[in-house]
Design a protein around this nucleic acid. Structure first.
Lengths: 334, 334
DNA sequence: CTGAAAGCGCTTACAG
DNA sequence: CTGAAAGCGCTTACAG
């Protein structure tokens, strides 16, 4: 049980009566090595159960075989789904995944990106809490590709995979307006963050195009923020007849506030929410949601990253993905 | 913007007019270095903005500064909470976290553990899908500490942090029996997995001690498994009056089956569920749950791991954590 | 207390 | 096509 002593490339070389250089070449798929050598080396590798030392490879190549994934909170189902998809693909290709949680803090993001620079990761998939972070440029200067996820970053050399937030917010408004709602309030995420700002913009634009007043409150993308933003609102006499909630965490807070106010959705107040976590259809009432194709987006982010890592592409690319409307009871529009 | 050229330990040594060895000693807290040297080195480090190359340190030490976390699925809130807690602590101490998803597959687990051996991680926190996996022993042989999380492993050299599953199941039964239920079915997880087996054992023991028949179905810890296991059951004329569900994923499947059967909980069927994800209080009906102190357990797992890494402890340790009952509407017992 | 030297296990320009 | 040698950037036993 357990190899007593790790074999090195020199052990293999000795056994195959070749130089370590040749072993290295064979293992790295260098075509120029003669067929006979190839065979001898492969046999020796097999017989000794040799596995290259990752740590030595990393130092020599000045790259670790890891991909950094930076999100605000892996406990948010939106991001755990994303991390899961990235991880599945990464491991399949021999890369590891380093996970970092920023809690939407620019300072934490800077620290983590700095660490990833130091770690010489192959690439970074980043859902930025701070689009201006100079560490992003430091990574790119360093030759480390960056793919922005959900939100773009300032440095135009980065790739980006984002959802069509303007259109998503417009869709949410349409669903509610069609059901006769006019007093609709948007529970927005942080406005200094792109997803927050874009969804709010889309909401305001859509409301105005219907000649309606665009009211909004700020829930900061957090559960307690959603609760706090809505609690007062619901107590007021001219409370809105419908809410659009900017992400799944705030939705939990809003559901609590509605319950505490003794109201029932959609009867007293209709609801449309961004994100479609597994529990969306089981809460009371089942939620009408705008689902992002998270898995597809994550897969694409990995592909963009690998195109950069392998040098297959050099100009930045940006892809935009539509939301999918899932009509359920909470919007009162079924 | 972006360091043009990384500084090395030799650059620092030259600037401080000392040897690289001295720089290394100062940076690694070697007390024996003279105060004057200390100061000179620290100044040079500061001035050059020197940061040690992690990759070189790893090779030299034959250890990477990473901790492997192996769970069945990071999309399960139980595990994302655990990973989050581990990650918070790890980064604070300068370690990285490598995440691996096994999907409850022994083959995947073996592959990932093998990778972690190769990666020379500092330690592994493992929620095992296969307690007998010889790779676990390979890690331990290798000097890599292993902390079993949720479920124990065969190799007694590993530490373990587990919940009191027997007692948890007993509590669930008590809640329902006290409300007058006698036909209670347990929706179990995989019986070849410790949490599955223990919770089932506890259920059967508690039921028998009340002179009741202990029926159970197998939902394999998965959402669709929970759905499939319960769908037929609910259609039968002598359907149970209450269900105990073995984890949060299966609970989503059970909620769907109940809805599809046109039943209402707790009126038609009462429910007690293991795990207390954020959505538990917002589903219809709010769930009575058995919550594990996941965060505390994860923190403890990290502490146990670090005690081993630093060599502060050599004998294995095992800690057991109680569940906490959260009474809500689904059990019909409020 | 400090330094010179060896070495961790690879990869890759350079010769031949 | 293949090998000898240098080197990635550290750390640490060994001398002094």
């Amino acid at each position: 049980m357990g190899s007593v002593q790790r074999k090195t490339i020199t052990d293999v070389a000795r056994r195959a009566s070749v130089s370590p250089a040749t072993v290295s070449r064979v293992l790295n798929g260098d075509e120029s090595v003669g067929a006979g050598y190839q065979r001898r080396v492969r046999r020796a590798v097999e017989e000794l159960g040799y596995r290259p030392n990752r740590l030595a490879q990393n130092l020599r190549r000045q790259r670790s075989a890891a991909i950094g994934v930076v999100v605000s909170d892996i406990e948010n189902p939106h991001f755990s789904e994303m991390v899961r998809a990235v991880e599945d693909q990464a491991y399949g290709r021999g890369y590891r995944v380093l996970v970092c949680n920023t809690d939407e803090s620019p300072a934490k993001q800077a620290t983590y990106l700095d660490t990833l620079v130091e770690e010489r990761v192959l690439g970074v998939i980043l859902s930025p809490s701070d689009a201006h972070d100079p560490q992003i440029s430091a990574l790119l200067d360093n030759g480390t590709p960056v793919v922005a996820f959900d939100r773009e970053v300032d440095d135009r050399r980065a790739d980006a995979v984002i959802a069509d937030n303007l259109e998503g917010a417009r869709t949410a408004v349409e669903v509610l307006v069609r059901s006769g709602h006019e007093r609709i309030t948007f529970v927005s995420g942080r406005r200094d963050v792109e997803t927050g700002a874009k969804r709010l913009d889309g909401f305001e634009f859509a409301m105005r195009s219907h000649g309606l007043e665009a009211r909004s409150v700020d829930g900061e993308f957090r559960t307690d923020g959603g609760h706090a933003a809505v609690a007062g609102l619901l107590a007021s006499p001219d409370r809105p007849s419908a809410l659009i909630v900017g992400n799944n965490l705030m939705t939990l807070g809003v559901l609590r506030a509605i319950r505490e106010a003794g109201l029932r959705a959609p009867h007293d107040i209709a609801l449309v929410a961004f994100d479609d976590p597994p529990w969306a259809e089981f809460v009371d009432p089942p939620l009408t949601t705008l689902a992002q194709p998270v898995r597809r987006m994550a897969t694409e982010a990995m592909e963009l990253l690998l195109e950069r890592v392998t040098g297959a592409r050099t100009e930045p690319r940006r892809t935009v993905h539509p939301f999918e409307l899932r009509l359920r009871a909470s919007s009162g529009s079924q």
